[in-house]
Design a protein around this nucleic acid. Sequence first.
DNA 1: TTGTATGCGTTATCAG
DNA 2: CTGATAACGCATACAA
Lengths: 327, 327
Amino acid sequence: MSDIARETSTSVSTVSRVLAGGAVSKRISKETREKVHEAAKRLGYRPNLLARSLRTRRSNTVALLVSDIANPWFGQLASTIEKNLHDKGYSLFLCNSAEDLKRESEYLHLLPQKGIDALILVPLLKSKKVLQQHLPPTLPVVVVDRPVQGVNSSVSSDQDMLANQLADSLAKIGVKKIAMANGPAHVSSHRRRAEILTQRFEVLAAFEGPSKRETGQAAMKEFVAKGIKPDAFVGTNLFLTIGMLDELNIPAIGQQMLPAFGCFDQLPFHDLLPMPVACAIQDIAGLADAVVRELMPLLQPNAPEPVPMVVPTLMSYNRAYLAKTGG
Amino acid sequence: MSDIARETSTSVSTVSRVLAGGAVSKRISKETREKVHEAAKRLGYRPNLLARSLRTRRSNTVALLVSDIANPWFGQLASTIEKNLHDKGYSLFLCNSAEDLKRESEYLHLLPQKGIDALILVPLLKSKKVLQQHLPPTLPVVVVDRPVQGVNSSVSSDQDMLANQLADSLAKIGVKKIAMANGPAHVSSHRRRAEILTQRFEVLAAFEGPSKRETGQAAMKEFVAKGIKPDAFVGTNLFLTIGMLDELNIPAIGQQMLPAFGCFDQLPFHDLLPMPVACAIQDIAGLADAVVRELMPLLQPNAPEPVPMVVPTLMSYNRAYLAKTGG
DNA sequence: TTGTATGCGTTATCAG
DNA sequence: CTGATAACGCATACAA
């Protein structure tokens, strides 16, 4: 800036005002304004955003800390949030806690020091305490996907709607009795999903374990061993469902007799499966939009009290399902 | 810092030296050192990393600009790179160009101004010119996955090895005739893959288009319409292969007669598929390691001339394939 | 061993 | 309309 001030025989302040644009630059004579712009271009001037942020205490940068960026679901979420934020003039600083609580608190500690304007968090932590411990109380925070007790600025899917839509869809093709592979009951979303399904159907068998592929496999093994014949198998999570499918030897059973499947999250390639499959999926674009709508007011001077947002869910069916319902 | 200087009756520089740690702090008396640390903790001092970077011209932050973070392949790559960099004491600023050339140049322009120490890039651009146009010549850059003419600091997979491994694997299960869905021929990796497969097999049909799911669908539609019966379908890209699978109505065809599939990149959940599937995959961990090994020297004062790194590839098979080869 | 003074690149305040 | 000057928070050369 001092270079271009010298070149144009003006002062650094004038240069700053011109380059600031907007109302401030209008108060500078057209002549010098053009001189400055010309010199800036000629010298290849690039503002130092660190210095600017240091001075203005604004960086136009929002951090997003996700629990696992290798998970395509979060990849899509991050991608959409970034797009939305970019439209509002913010850059996204994307970080990954990799399902590691230690990494999460490290980032929670580090990010505010890097001069971010706000934080969007897919939390691993379960208590508000950790947040308060690491984050300055003034930093706007939006919690996504997994509500945290006591944090009002949160965006998540309507878990009850999700489970009920799935139940509706299964009921529609005549399902009455199910067998379930459940994730850990201490995780609220798994518990709630299981509760609702239990209300809506007769549960012939339920198998609980960590939400991994192996649990689904073990569940299916047990169901087969016990000779359980439900109208549908349901997993409270994508990995559990896939595990069950792993153990289901489709050619051996014979395709006509296959029970249906109910799944949370989008099952890849479900059109390749011969039995009816209904997937209850969380609306990623809807969540991303809601995040930005929740966040923007918090960035304004007189921030209103935030209120949790709940996003409607969607269903997805495979061809075999649609063939059965006739459309 | 001035607060804690006042509390401890010392000066800001003393506080700075103590908090800097390492050799500098050793030259301060143990007494005052402890006083300072105590006060820092008591006052909840957090260094302002913007100010520090402004002064030292180092941010310990590396930017990674990927072409599509919603693509799980890049998600995994980003995740692994972040882990490696974190171990070396660097934070990762992850950005997404979302397959959009305009977004890419915006970021290319913006990132250096944010005070990053280096840039890792999965480029959309094909010419070195754009890089030179936006990036300061002093900024260390590593190009990943897609080599750019004239850029030596690059890390990529061995494309010839990749295609030949896939061909070997298909030949092993008796494949002689294939039908292909090809990505754009002007993209070097797609072209090279197609060339090698054409050398190794009889190509009954080939369909070219942008590397999107829709192209694979269109390809399969055409193959079916023309009554083409290959021993295997091959897509030169994950999305092309998935698109072909979308259109393949397995129940209608009958599982015994299904052709095999050859795929580049890891097809998710390929164990759900009844036909043999061979995937030629790029070693993500290997690439991520190479990126860091390529980058670290560039961050040192007397950077040696970088040399392009080529990483070996891997194969992955589904159960149906392994059953056919006997393990 | 420690304090003083200066500067990193910007913006903001206050004169004029 | 414009120019000095201070300040953002920190690190460091130079003194003491």
